[in-house]
Computed example of a mutant assay.
Amino acid sequence: MKGKFALLILVCLSLPFFTKAQDKPITVAKDGTGDYLTVQEAINAVPDFRKVPTTILIRNGIYQEKLNLSPSKKLVKLVGEDVSKTILTYNDYAAKKNRFGEEMGTSGSSSFYICGDGFTAYNITFQNTSGPVGQAVALWISGDQTTFFNCRIKGFQDTLYTFGAGNRQYFKNCYIEGTVDFIFGAATALFEDCTIFCKQGAHYITASSAPDTITYGYVFLNCRITGDALERTVYLGRPWRPYSKTVYINCTLPKLIKSEGWDNWRKASNEKTAYYAEYKNTGEGFNPEKRVAWSHQLSDDEVKNYTTALIFKGWNPKTTLAETGKYINYEH
């Protein structure tokens, strides 16, 4: 009996070591030195509905794959070795025909579908390389509580599809580029300390389709808008749906931003329902006195409603940075 009791104590004392073993990350490497050669193989290896995070380390390389993280793959973390050298890419576009001769459509064009809740990405470039051929999505995100730290999201038209009304998405220190409606969708998304690059031919940065049932659509906080688009040719946003919501707070706006700031998408009734606002932006593109009359300049009291806790209803995406700190050296 004493022997069995002693064995039980030994097993209990060893549990933390078993837990650490379970946290061992999966590695992807094109040269065969990892656990898998492709990112999709690594994603497929994640147990369905796992209740603890699974980390996938991706070594430098160009991974040309059309990727799908299904809803059953939860709490998955992708960590790249170097944001400029760890590249996940594909080249579909909306007008491209599938094997049945049908056009893929906007959603079908995406290079990566992220449907699992609790997804996190660090130091990775996500891109669609099809070029200026119409809608061509790099990221299609329907999962809730998704976070992106120090990532690049590259494409032309419709680059980032924040799909799913009310889903919460956080982008920190990211680079996002495109031309027309290149950040679009119904989700609640906070972009903090990001660089938004308007490529040649750019006209609209955002096209929120947030419904009237949610309070926040897109919030840009301390972001830098830049690019090589022509001067006074780019709108901050237009309403894909009537209750579109987009706010820029303490952002730097260049001369490429049109003085009027916002467009009603050829529908005057949108002016009564869409909510577009700014607060203490700077730069030659910030012309509050010339903005369309139906947009807003937030007061000091109103801007207090734009905290991470309020925007995300208590979810704190920044905790995931600390949890994965042992795998990366991320600079705030």
Rank of each mutant, 00 (worst) to 15 (best):
Y218T: 03
E284N: 15
V39C: 08
Y175D: 11
Q200S: 14
I214C: 02
G261M: 08
K66M: 09
F119A: 04
K245I: 04
T27Q: 11
G101L: 03
P254Q: 11
F119Y: 08
S295D: 05
K85N: 11
V83H: 04
F126P: 01
K51R: 13
D144V: 09
T54R: 06
K96I: 06
T27H: 08
F149I: 02
Q22W: 10
V83W: 05
K154E: 12
K4C: 13
I58R: 00
T120A: 12
F197S: 05
T282K: 15
I62K: 12
P16Y: 13
R152H: 15
S295F: 04
K85L: 11
L310R: 14
W294S: 13
L78A: 11
A42M: 10
S259G: 09
N98V: 03
R232L: 02
T188C: 04
V52S: 12
L78F: 15
K313L: 07
K267C: 13
F18E: 10
G143F: 06
R291H: 14
S295W: 06
V219E: 00
G201R: 10
Y63R: 04
L310P: 00
F17Q: 14
E177A: 10
C12Q: 09
L236M: 15
N128G: 03
A42I: 06
D193Q: 10
F119T: 02
T146G: 04
N316R: 07
I249W: 07
V247G: 05
N60K: 15
C12G: 05
Y306Q: 06
L37N: 12
V39P: 00
T206Y: 03
G34Y: 11
V11T: 15
K51P: 02
E271D: 14
I58F: 05
V52H: 08
A309V: 10
K258V: 08
Q169M: 12
I124S: 08
R152C: 09
A186H: 02
G116D: 07
I311M: 05
S259V: 05
A136I: 01
T320Y: 03
K318G: 05
I196F: 07
L13G: 09
K318H: 10
E323L: 11
V303G: 08
T19L: 15
Y235G: 00
T27P: 03
G166C: 04
G3D: 14
V133F: 04
L10V: 15
N264H: 14
P71K: 11
T233M: 12
I9K: 13
F148W: 08
R168T: 07
G178R: 03
Y218C: 03
Y204Q: 02
N128I: 01
Y93Q: 00
K97V: 09
R266D: 15
I26V: 15
T273I: 07
A29T: 03
S111N: 07
K258E: 04
I141Q: 02
A165Q: 12
K280S: 12
I43Y: 01
L8H: 12
L298Q: 06
K73C: 05
Y218H: 09
G143A: 10
Y248E: 03
A6C: 11
W315S: 02
C151F: 06
E260C: 09
Y243R: 02
Y122C: 08
T188P: 00
R291V: 07
Y170C: 06
L236P: 01
V52P: 01
K85T: 05
N173T: 13
G118E: 06
A121M: 02
W240M: 13
I114M: 09
G285L: 12
R99A: 14
A42L: 08
N128D: 05
T147P: 00
